[in-house]
């Protein structure tokens, strides 16, 4: 990693043990840079959710420290943390507490004690970004379909204008089309200047969207590389019981024909096939 990059989040030798004695993280170091799109992967219980919650300041490290935007999460206030790092939970039902969509999105800004006209401005801005029509503002979030509830949950976080947004399993239970929609939207936020961290089990999603992949197993960070390189480290991935996307595995099984080991998508594989064919033809001709 080049040192010119601006690390907005620094996890320094952090360990975390839950009150019941479960050791969730052991000596983890991690830096997240401004405007990155990072994926945390690993099995349930590997510590990836704990790490994400430590970054959002929802949990405080047992040992070591977490610095977000220059603040130690142990010393920063809830207001400071929430306006810098947003955390979208997996199940929208855990994070929708209000009777109308408007109140829901306004909840965060109101907790910041902002004047009501500023609150209104932020609500309108947020629902616009997530593509939610104004007609929903007076509806109860409870009765909306799951996809829309997830959008309301994201809008509620955006209203706090956090620079980094963490999304826990955005595509679990979603079909192909819904997954692409939500991920394209997160990419859009990323282009707008937000740093995005996702927690996921879906490697195709990681391959398509994440610049960098952090792999956790048994509470330890076992891999932290640009996604393209991460998926070539199959020996390390195997320790976390993670397999690269199918197309990557196909390319890796065919390296003897001259395929690259770091293919991430079907389109890349098609491109590489042309190259392989060309090369083999030349080889034969000679």
């Amino acid at each position: 990693m080049s040192s010119e990059k601006n690390a907005v989040i620094k996890v320094e030798n952090v360990s975390f043990t839950y009150p019941d004695g479960t050791v969730a993280l052991v000596n983890v170091d991690l830096e997240i840079y401004d405007r990155e799109f990072v994926a945390f992967i690993g099995q349930n219980g590997s510590g990836k959710t704990t790490l994400a919650k430590l970054i959002a300041g929802l949990l405080k490290p047992t040992e070591g420290r977490v610095i977000v935007y220059g603040m130690d999460t142990r010393k920063a206030s809830i207001h400071q943390l929430a306006t810098h790092v947003g955390y979208v939970f997996q199940n929208p039902d855990h994070q929708l507490f209000n009777m109308t969509v408007y109140d829901e999105v306004a909840f965060g800004p109101r907790n910041l004690m902002l004047p009501e006209e500023e609150v209104r401005k932020r609500v309108m801005e947020s629902i616009k970004i997530v593509g939610l029509s104004e007609e929903y503002l007076n509806e109860s979030p409870f009765f909306l379909p799951k996809g829309l509830r997830q959008r309301v949950a994201i809008a509620s976080i955006l209203a706090l204008r956090p620079k980094t947004i963490i999304v826990d399993e955005p595509t679990t239970g979603q079909d192909f089309k819904q997954s692409i929609e939500i991920m394209d939207f997160l990419k859009h936020l990323n282009k707008l200047g937000h740093t995005i961290i996702i927690i996921t089990h879906e490697m195709e999603i990681v391959a398509r969207y994440a610049d960098r992949t952090v792999v956790l197993a048994n509470g330890r960070k076992i891999l932290d590389e640009p996604t393209r390189i991460a998926f070539t480290r199959t020996d390390v991935l195997a320790k976390a019981f993670v397999k690269p996307p199918q197309i990557t595995r196909l390319a890796q099984a065919l390296t003897d024909l001259g395929f690259r080991r770091d293919i991430l998508t079907v389109d890349e594989m098609v491109e590489d096939t042309k190259r392989v064919l060309e090369r083999n033809r030349k080889y034969r001709r000679r």
Binding site: L58, F89, H94, Q95, F97, N98, I157, L160
Partner: peptide, 28 residues
């Protein structure tokens, strides 16, 4: 945790507010 992520600082609130906000757990 989700309420904390939305900048709700329950400890900083006066008691009456605290009780009121407690009711919000009921909805989800």
């Amino acid at each position: 945790e989700a309420e904390k992520a939305r900048a709700l600082d329950i400890k900083a609130l006066p008691l009456a507010q605290k009780i009121k906000k407690f009711g919000m757990y009921i909805v989800p």
